[in-house]
């Protein structure tokens, strides 16, 4: 029963155990998979998803759901590409622009959810349609982005022995640190967790749940927009149909990282771990060579379902003892 309580109070423990087992299995099976180089690549490759998942984590902790993440990500990628190639805007300025636009779009979604008292999944579904169509309207075809600053950003590396660190990985790391600080130490983070954990108590103690949630949707869409910018830096191009279904991967990563879909629980580091586990599974499947894309989905979906179900069972167990 001590185990049950321990697991119920520390959702991340389960993630770590699964990660450890998985790494041990992979290490025994494939040579060289447990190397700094693989880890560095993992971080660099998953930065885009990591940024999006960070935003999704905040929304989930606040008791909401955002299905527009992938579409917002694609839209902002296209917007960056258009601004930089079409209008000669400096990349840094373009990044700032799309993040602001994304946040405004998210705030709008949040406002509709709170104002019309509609289910979040429905409103963000509509948001998905709107953002996706805006992206297609901006750029029906894929846009190649060729800009010296972007190229330099994409190539910049910080070598630490075997471990090399790119700009994207750095941005993700910084965002995760910032998210962790926001959640653990800021008043906003405390409000988010209180609103997700017990909205009635939060309201009784002077917090304004509606405002907090609107801010969360803005934050989530802002993170998704940043992920879109990261996509451009990473791939050197932008497409309106990119990041299809990314919202699911982001939510799955957050849940695997210990975020509760019922709200109130979650952490930025946990989500980063979830994203890494997600990427690690893809790497393993790549190493295996013969396995198709289906396995990634099955593994991620099964992990997602397994974590949700395990949490439910652990909670029942902890309550029973």
């Amino acid at each position: 029963m001590k185990v049950a309580r321990f697991l119920a109070e520390r959702p991340l423990a389960l993630t770590l155990v699964v990660f450890g087992l998985f790494a041990a299995f992979a290490g025994a099976r494939y040579d060289g998979i447990l190397s700094w180089r693989v880890l560095a690549n993992l971080i660099e490759d998953d930065a885009e998803l990591g940024l999006a998942a960070l935003g999704a984590t905040f929304v989930l902790i606040g008791g909401g759901l955002d299905l527009s993440i992938g579409a917002v990500c694609a839209c902002s990628g296209v917007l960056v590409a258009t601004l930089v190639t079409g209008h000669g805007v400096e990349p840094a300025l373009a990044f700032g622009c799309v993040t602001a636009v994304g946040a405004a779009f998210g705030a709008f979604q949040g406002w509709v959810i709170e104002r019309a008292a509609l289910p979040p999944f429905l409103v963000t579904l509509a948001g998905l349609f709107l953002a996706r169509s805006a992206a297609l309207a901006l750029a029906p075809e894929s846009i190649a982005v060729d800009h010296p600053t972007l190229a330099a950003l994409g190539d910049a590396r910080l070598e630490l022995g075997d471990f090399s660190f790119g700009v994207l990985g750095g941005a993700w790391l910084l965002a995760t640190l910032g998210g962790a600080w926001l959640l653990a130490l800021s008043r906003f983070g405390r409000a988010v967790r209180a609103v997700g954990g017990n909205p009635r108590a939060a309201a009784n103690f002077g917090l304004r749940p509606a405002r907090v949630r609107i801010a969360l949707y803005a934050l989530s869409a802002g993170c998704a927009a940043l992920a879109g910018a990261a996509h451009v830096v990473y791939g050197g191009s932008a497409s309106a149909i990119a990041a299809n279904g990314m919202e699911l991967d982001a939510i799955a990563a957050a849940v695997i990282g210990g975020t509760a879909l019922s709200g109130g629980v979650g952490s930025a580091f946990g989500t980063a771990l979830g994203v890494l586990l997600f990427g690690f599974i893809q790497t393993v499947i790549l190493f295996e060579g013969t396995l198709g894309a289906g396995w990634t989905r099955i593994a991620v979906g099964a992990l997602f379902l397994g974590f949700v179900a395990a949490r439910r069972l652990i909670e029942r167990w902890a309550r029973a003892t």
Partner: peptide, 29 residues
């Protein structure tokens, strides 16, 4: 009648919800 606590918060966080001691870097745990 219903307990007005955030179940996931520590007792300390619950006790001082909205009145947390703060420093320049945030809440002083």
């Amino acid at each position: 009648q219903e307990v007005d606590l955030v179940p996931e918060f520590s007792l300390a966080e619950n006790l001082l919800l909205g009145r947390e001691p703060r420093r320049w870097w945030g809440i002083e745990r």
